[in-house]
């Protein structure tokens, strides 16, 4: 469960300061799916960075499973992200010259898992996204959709409780995008992983249980889907 309490994020000082987030508060329960919408500059990316513990709020706190993250050392935060979070990005961010398998293994390598164990888990994750046959291929050999599938496998490989997706279908055509969306929501339902998606796409947002619409650093609309 993630809880966000009165967080604000300000850049710069005094006259030159810019406030990206104003006093934002909400809760995300385990196993739910949330879409964060808003135009550019609305603060949605900033909000996600703070939720994903990649950034610290200037004011307020983020609680993960009731633990206050502002009291954690950077080592503890690193460990938390490594064990509980998975990331899917619009631009994939894969090492093109490495194999698909090596790309998926990365979070486990960072965690210090043994070679054999991490290979086993990576292959499992690739199976879940139906990319097992491409394990030995170079990442650059794949199409956009295939790459995003590998990214999802990478996000899954450490058995996360939350997956953060930043415009996951932004670089994909509609058909491929649908496939990816289905994959994400399928995993969400099957494994109970919390999904937090930042997107422009209203259709994608509609598939999520909750929506938050941001403007100028504030939440202007909160909608809960009736499912």
């Amino acid at each position: 469960m993630i809880e966000v309490k009165n967080i604000s994020k300000t850049y710069g000082k005094n006259e030159n300061s810019f406030t990206a987030l104003h006093d934002v508060s909400f809760k995300i329960s385990d196993g739910s799916s949330l879409a964060i919408l808003g135009k550019s500059g609305s603060g949605k990316s900033t909000l996600m960075h703070i939720l994903a513990l990649l950034d610290k709020p200037t004011k307020g706190s983020v609680l993960i499973d009731d633990s206050d993250t502002s009291e954690m050392t950077s080592h503890e935060l690193d460990k938390l992200r490594n064990e509980k979070f998975g990331f899917v990005f619009q631009q994939f961010f894969m090492n093109s010259n490495d194999t698909v398998l090596d790309n998926v293994i990365l979070p486990l390598k960072v965690a210090g898992v043994t070679k054999r164990e991490r290979k086993r888990r990576a292959l499992e994750a690739l199976k879940a996204v139906e990319m097992l046959d491409k394990a030995k291929n170079k990442a650059s050999d794949l199409s956009g959709g295939q790459k995003q599938r590998v990214c999802i496998a990478r996000a899954l490989v450490n058995n996360p409780s939350i997956i953060f997706a930043d415009e996951p279908t932004g670089n994909l055509d509609t058909a491929t995008g649908d496939v990816i969306e289905n994959l994400l929501f399928g995993l969400h339902k099957d494994k109970g992983i919390t999904l937090i998606i930042v997107t422009h796409d209203a259709d994608l947002a509609a598939k999520c249980e909750e929506n938050i619409y941001m403007r100028d650093g504030k939440i202007v609309t909160k909608r809960e889907a009736k499912l």
């Binding site: 992200r81 961010f93 990365l106 960072v110 965690a111």
Partner: peptide, 16 residues
């Protein structure tokens, strides 16, 4: 740069 960013996002410390 991006590769380092990703490594850090998945929990690799600056020290490492």
């Amino acid at each position: 740069t991006k590769e380092i960013g990703l490594m850090k996002a998945v929990g690799m410390s600056g020290g490492r």
